[in-house]
Structure formats: structure tokens, C-alpha cells
Amino acid sequence: MSVDTTRAAVPPSRGTAARRASSQLSARPRLRLSLLLAAPLTWLVLVYVVALAALLVSALWTVDSFTGEIDRSLTLDNLKEITTESLYRTVALRTVGVAALVTVVDVLVALPIAFYMAKVASKRAQRILVIAVLTPLWASYLVKAFAWRSVLSDGGIFQWAASPFGLDTPGYGLTAVVITQAYIWLPYVILPIFAGLERVPNSLVDAAGDLGASPWTSMRTIVLPLLVPAIIAGSIFSFSLTLGDYITVNIVGGANQMLGNLVYTNVGAANNLPLAAAIALIPIVIMIGYLTAVRRTGALENL
């Protein structure tokens, strides 16, 4: 890192007012902090927190199914419905299962490639690999999902490639959803793990090797523990992005539905925002639970 010291020399003060403001600021860290926080906090609270709170409140409303007018008297009916009807439990479990599987697959796939990128590849190869990992992000999500539809179809490339091993295409269904989602979100998992690995000093692993640890042992006992926050950071992306998805499951999921579909059907097709909001509570609760659980690991600083 280089700081141009000649340029960093303080320029002569121009406006006295600006000068005074600046020294005021230097003297008052609290004021500085408030000024820094004011804009982003206002934005997040006004745009996001208010919107989320309003959504939660609307879960307590009902809707006139014919005129589509919302009845704003408070009732727990929607909440009762999503907690008692078995449909919502089944779909929620299915969705969490798919999201968890996607995350596991992504992490398992990301670890070796990220390790190769961070620790083995030359600087030049590393640069090319980062580009190679990032490029698929730019092909539209929808286009990629439809490409997988084609790959997994009856007589598609998957079947062709798998038949010599006596395997068949899984067809459209939850397996296809896991494959497609894992594929789409993979770059978002590779990148934080790669960055996390770069921060693990080579000397540490080498020292373990010198002391007689096998590569596998040093990997398990030294690298992985240091990598946990990065892995969790990556998992937040894959897990949450899968949790709310309804488009991929429409394209390759066969007749299955996930939480996103239930929300979408209710808000899009049935115009029932209150029930949709109540259903949306399920992923909200799951995600907030997950985030608070992992907050202590420092993962949130590694996203």
C-alpha cells in the first residue's frame, strides 16, 4: 500500500466556514458518527423496516375475495391457518430441505475450487479463474434455468452423459431444483470462501505439515475452522436465495411447489396479500433465526 505523502500534506485552508466545520467534526466523534449513519440508516429504516413492518401488520388483515378490497380489521385467522394447516408445514419443510441441500452441495463444490484458486493457482491463473467464476453470473437467471430444463429433459444432455454409467436423468422434480439452484448460486458461494481462504496464512498450514500432519489433517484441523465464517457467509446467499425462489421450481420442479410459489400464488393470482404476508413470515422467521444463530461466528462480516 502506498500513500502519496507529498499529496497528503494538508492544503491551505480555503473556506473558513468549511474549516470550522471540519475542526468541529474532528473534535466530536459522536457528531461524525451521526452524520455517517444518518443517510444509510434513514434509507434502510424508511424503505425497508417500514415496509417489512407494514407487511407483518397486513398479515393480520383479510381481503374481500371478489372486489379485492382489503379489510383492515385485525384478526389472527391467517396466522392460525398457516400454523394449523398441514399444507404449509409440508411445503415449508420441503423448501427448507431443498435450501439446505443446495447449500451443502454448493459448499462442497466450492471448497476445492476455491482452495485451488486461493492456494495453488498462480497469480495469473487465479485472475483468470475469478473471471471464469464470475462470468456465468451475467447470463440471465431465467436463461440458465431454461438451459437446465433442456439439459435434464428426457433425451437431454444429462441422460446422454449419464447413460454410460447406468444412470438416468432425474427428470423434473426436487432433484432438478437442487441441481439448478446449486448451479445458479454457486458463484455467490465460491467468492466468499475464496476470499476467506486467501486470508488463511500459508505458513500455518505448512507448519502443520512440517510437524507431521497429513494434508487432510491440517485441512480439517487448521483451515476449515478458520474458514467457518466464510462458509457461513456463502451459505447465507445460497440458503436465502433458494428459500424464496419460485421461478426455478416452476421451470424444472415438476409438479412441486415451494414457499415462494405459495406466496406468489396468493399475491399474484389470488390477490390475497394478507395470506401471502402470513406465509412470508415463515421464511422471515427461518432467516432471522439463522442470522442470529450465526452472528457470533463473525460470518456476517464475511458476506
Partner: peptide, 15 residues
Amino acid sequence: KDYSEWTKAWTEIKG
């Protein structure tokens, strides 16, 4: 049965 009930039933049918 009105349309909102149809919608609800539809999500249940798909399961």
C-alpha cells in the same frame, strides 16, 4: 365456493 377458496384448494391439491 369463491375464487379465494379455489385458490386455496389449488395450493392444497398441488401439496
